[in-house]
């Protein structure tokens, strides 16, 4: 499975949020808008962090919001939310977070290729700061589409 297309309606630029649950909710809203998930998936993404902590903050400034596959996942999907003001998730090294990538996978068994493509994007250390300061959704989309070529 290649990286799912990142439609413009799955991108939110400069969201204003006060705390990490609001940041995850913004990512959930983007997945709902693009048709990848229902709002129940948002609640499950928040529950993962409530249960296991801020380990989803996997790089400086970046949170990977996700939960297990479920009936609330309508299609494989990706979303990107950038924050107007970074928020703390409680990670000792990678806080504060200014970019949230939301991931919905319909089937756990075949998401590895998808994630490998995601790793290809973010293995470039310039990408997180570039996304954090992105002015337009089109720019964010172009960062994720570069890897297809």
């Amino acid at each position: 499975m290649p990286l799912p297309h990142l439609p413009l309606d799955a991108i939110t630029i400069g969201a204003h949020v006060d705390d990490w649950p609001a940041a995850i909710t913004a990512a959930g809203d983007a997945l709902v808008r693009s048709g990848a998930a229902t709002s129940a998936y948002t609640d499950r993404m928040i529950a993962v962090i409530a249960e296991f902590g801020a380990y989803i903050v996997i790089a400086p400034g970046l949170a990977l919001a996700h939960a297990r596959p479920g009936a609330d996942v309508l299609a494989d999907g990706l979303c990107v939310v950038t924050l107007a003001e970074p928020v703390a998730f409680g990670h000792p090294h990678n806080d504060p977070v200014s970019v949230i990538v939301g991931l919905a996978v319909a089937n756990a068994d075949d998401h590895l290729q998808f994630v490998a493509e995601l790793a290809n994007v973010f293995n470039d250390p310039a990408v997180i700061p570039a996304l954090a300061s992105a002015a337009t959704a089109e720019f964010v989309q172009s960062v994720f589409e570069k890897i297809d070529s």
Partner: peptide, 8 residues
């Protein structure tokens, strides 16, 4: 935490 996504 859940064995997919971040661990992948």
């Amino acid at each position: 935490g859940i064995g997919l996504g971040t661990s992948a």
